[in-house]
Structures are given as C-alpha cells and as structure tokens.
Computed example of a mutant assay.
Amino acid sequence: MSLEWIGALAATCTTLSFVPQAVKTIRSRDTRGISLLMYATFTFGIACWFGYGLVLHSWPMIVSNAVTFVLSATILALKLKHG
C-alpha cells in the first residue's frame, strides 16, 4: 500500500498555508517586515526539496515545492527590488 497520499496531504497543507502571506506581499509590495536572509535561505531550501522530489519521483514533493518556489522567489525578488 502506497502512503504517497500522506505526502500529498502534507504538501497541500504546507503550500496552501504559505499562499495567503505570499498573495498579501505580492499585492502590497510591502517587504519591510521580511528578512532577506530568511527568504534567500528558504527559497534555496525549497529548490533543494524540489530537486529531491525529482530524484525520488515524488509528485507531491515536486508539485508543492514548485508552487512554493515560485511564490517564495517572487517575494524574494520583491524584497530585492523594494527592500
């Protein structure tokens, strides 16, 4: 029996929990309260999780980390531009 559904549930929850903050930051362009070092490290970590998901052929890891990477990289870019 595959337990891939647990990974899918976890990936969905963690990715969805990130979306409201990302949307708020993208809309407002306000990055004053965001740590550049934290977002740079977080974005790099998400890229690593994405790569790990590719190696394991784990679609929950691949999809969730691809979405989270796009959101976090966007916020990081906004921080670099407006920070």
Rank of each mutant, 00 (worst) to 15 (best):
L54Y: 09
G45Y: 03
K81P: 00
V70W: 00
A66T: 07
I6A: 13
D30Y: 09
C13A: 14
K81S: 10
I26Q: 00
A40H: 00
T43L: 10
F18Q: 07
L16I: 10
T25K: 02
P60S: 12
V67F: 13
S28K: 01
I34Y: 09
G7I: 07
S17H: 05
L16H: 02
L80V: 15
R32K: 14
P20V: 02
L76S: 03
T15N: 07
G45E: 00
G83K: 12
R32L: 13
G53L: 01
I34R: 12
L76K: 03
G45W: 04
C13F: 13
S58N: 12
L56H: 06
T14P: 05
A8Q: 06
M61H: 08
F44I: 15
F44D: 00
A77G: 14
T15V: 11
T14L: 14
C13K: 00
V70I: 15
L78E: 03
K81G: 00
F44L: 15
A73Y: 11
A10H: 01
V55M: 13
F42E: 03
E4D: 11
G83L: 15
V70H: 01
T15R: 04
A66F: 10
S72D: 05
R27G: 03
A47F: 08
C48R: 06
G33N: 13
Y52D: 06
T74S: 12
A40S: 12
S64K: 08
T25R: 03
R27V: 04
R29Y: 04
G45C: 05
T31P: 10
R32I: 06
L36W: 12
M1H: 12
H82F: 15
G7V: 05
W49H: 04
I34W: 13
A22N: 02
S72V: 07
L9C: 13
V55I: 14
I62T: 05
L16R: 03
A22L: 00
